[in-house]
Computed example of a mutant assay.
Amino acid sequence: MKAPAADQLRLLDLQAVDLSIDQLAHRKRTLPEHAEIEKTAGTLAELRDELSTAESGVEELDRKIHQLEEEVDQVRTRAQRDQQRMDSGTIGSSKELERLQHEVETLASRQSALEDDELVLMEERETADGARSEVQTRFDAATEALADLEVRRDTLETEIDTDIAARTAEREPLAAQIPDDLRALYEKLRASSGGIGAAALRARRCGGCRIELYGTALMEAREADEDEVLRCEECRRILVRTAESGL
């Protein structure tokens, strides 16, 4: 393939722009915020489960306390009813009065036991609520941290996208000046060679693979017409001769 030397030199300018765009895209993909967001999101998911478990524990204790309160009310109501019957003086027999007195005493004992159980549950509930509050605090902090990270990531990505757009706009007129066949070869090589399709030949060394030309390859490069498109024998990239080629 042949192409004017000036067009071959333009390939280096195009390659520099493309490399810059690739580096910006790589930076966007590998922003530290991505890993931090993933880690924080994982922590947040764990805390969400922990918080759900803590809330369920508090709700279960509330249910048990409410159940005990209802039982205490029932026992208290029954005891009051029996006491009212005793105080009314309408009890006909001493046996019936004795039975009611025993029942009132039994109900008082039952009420006391229920209230003790309720007190224990309320203490457990206070401890559980404290644990829930502690998890909630960590959950809120992680939520805030994740939001901050996402804002920082979005800001950086926007800045990078702006730079990519500027470099892409710079690329278009450069690419348009290069002959179609030479540009097509460059694009093909760039796609298959890690983003580098053309490299400068400096000090007899390929700027792509860093291999130095010697022997037949060096002789051919020295003897080639200036419009001859050279290829590196090692990496097959386009070799662009410069004033520093050392030929």
Rank of each mutant, 00 (worst) to 15 (best):
E234I: 05
A217R: 01
A3T: 10
R125Q: 06
C206Y: 13
E50H: 14
D225G: 14
E38V: 07
A41Q: 10
E234L: 08
S193D: 00
R81N: 14
L24T: 07
C232T: 01
A184G: 07
L24D: 08
A184D: 05
M122D: 12
E98A: 15
T43P: 05
A203K: 15
D227G: 09
V72R: 04
V240F: 00
Q74F: 08
L119P: 02
L247F: 14
L201A: 11
A217V: 11
E126A: 12
E115Y: 03
R202G: 00
H34L: 07
V240K: 04
A165E: 09
S94W: 12
C209S: 10
R171K: 01
A145M: 11
T168Y: 04
R138L: 01
P4Q: 00
D181A: 13
E134P: 05
K95H: 00
A169C: 00
H66W: 01
E96S: 15
C232M: 12
A198G: 03
E96K: 14
A199Q: 01
I211Q: 15
E124K: 14
S20W: 00
E157R: 02
E212Y: 08
L185V: 09
S245F: 14
S109Q: 15
T158F: 07
D22S: 07
A45V: 13
L97W: 14
A166P: 03
L114T: 06
L11V: 07
E115I: 10
A41E: 11
E159H: 11
E55F: 13
M219V: 10
T127A: 15
D129L: 12
V229M: 10
A184L: 04
E157S: 00
A141V: 03
L51T: 04
G89E: 11
G197S: 02
R81Y: 06
R48P: 04
G197E: 09
L47H: 01
A3H: 09
L107A: 12
E59V: 13
V135E: 13
L156Y: 06
E71L: 09
E170M: 06
E103R: 14
Q15Y: 06
E223N: 10
E38P: 01
V151L: 07
S133Y: 02
L14P: 04
E220T: 05
E105G: 14
A5D: 02
E124D: 15
Y214I: 14
G197I: 03
R63E: 10
Q84N: 05
L14E: 01
G208Y: 01
